[in-house]
């Protein structure tokens, strides 16, 4: 291990200080606040009353919260194992610089610039059974029997909310493409002299080189899957029959019901589950370290 000089140490402290201070003020303190109130019954107006672990037993006994956890896992899988791999594939394709790749790179990012509300509104219209284009498309394709009220159907609502966003890969594709473009060209030149095809180059050079970034993207996608809120809130508000409920929406509704204690207990559970997910992904992609 390299020794760190004292001037470096001072630099390190100075460099870490702003992040640590802001983090303490805007994360450690608020999370502490949430943790404390999670042991109380609090309507946000009168004084909180200490109730021990009751909020935690309440939410774990609540089948709706358990369903929310399951759904969040669905979101995590969709983000980490469908969306990111798709982004990797597209990033690899664009890294070959096909015709118009710059324009494509920009356009693929468009949906991330539009607000979630308007994006969700459009998809609600797509899925609508009265005037939606999905049912229209199925009819044209001779699959009329599949037509349904997508967001109002017990079996399709959850998938409908989750899946449309999976194909909006711009966010991750940009990160991956940037990383791919920083791989020295010489690596590929050597490989093509050895007769490796483009696909082989992708597998043996590019993918290993961007493994760390893929891990980064997967972590971010999964964390967003756990924190998922706006899309569900706008499109289904957790319905029908709570089938699309997710943890943050659950806690949001509890705040609406003046149940801050329960809301904060669900936030704590979310943090715990999320930490587990992050640590697992980190372990899997550990080789990238050192």
């Amino acid at each position: 291990m390299r020794k760190i000089s004292i001037s470096d140490k001072i630099g390190m402290i100075l460099f870490l200080a702003p992040a640590v201070i802001l983090f303490t003020v805007f994360f450690v303190y608020p999370v502490g606040f949430i943790l404390v109130t999670s042991f109380t019954e609090w309507d946000g107006m009168s004084s909180p009353v200490f109730v021990g672990l009751r909020n935690y037993t309440t939410i774990f006994k609540d089948p709706i919260f358990r369903l929310a956890i399951r759904n969040n896992i669905g979101w995590v899988i969709a983000g980490g194992f469908i969306q990111v791999p798709l982004a990797v594939i597209v990033a690899l394709m664009l890294s070959k610089k096909p015709f118009g790749w710059k324009a494509l790179r920009t356009i693929y990012y468009f949906p991330n610039v539009i607000s979630t509300v308007s994006l969700s509104m459009m998809w609600m219209a797509v899925y609508n059974s009265e005037y939606g284009i999905l049912n229209g498309l199925l009819k044209i394709l001779g699959l009329g029997h599949l037509q349904r009220n997508w967001l109002g159907d017990l079996h399709t609502a959850f998938y409908s909310v989750v899946l449309y966003g999976v194909f909006y890969i711009g966010y991750f594709m940009i990160i991956l493409l940037a990383d791919i473009s920083s791989i020295p060209k010489s690596y590929y030149e050597a490989a093509s002299i050895d007769g490796a095809t483009k696909i082989q180059q992708d597998f043996y050079i590019t993918l290993p080189m961007i493994k760390g970034t893929i891990g980064t993207c997967m972590t971010v996608a999964m964390v967003y899957g756990l924190r998922q809120f706006e899309q569900t809130y706008v499109m289904t508000n957790g319905g029908p029959a709570n089938k699309t409920m997710v943890m943050v929406l659950y806690l949001f509704k509890k705040i609406g019901d003046f149940k801050y204690g329960i809301a904060d207990a669900s936030a704590v559970v979310l943090l715990l589950i999320g930490s587990l997910v992050i640590l697992t992904v980190k372990r899997i992609f550990r080789t990238e370290n050192n």
Partner: peptide
Amino acid sequence: SPSVGTEFPQALSSLVLGEK
């Protein structure tokens, strides 16, 4: 109570979809 009001849309959709 507010909680019942919040749950109403969910319970209603299960009711009319025949789940409940």
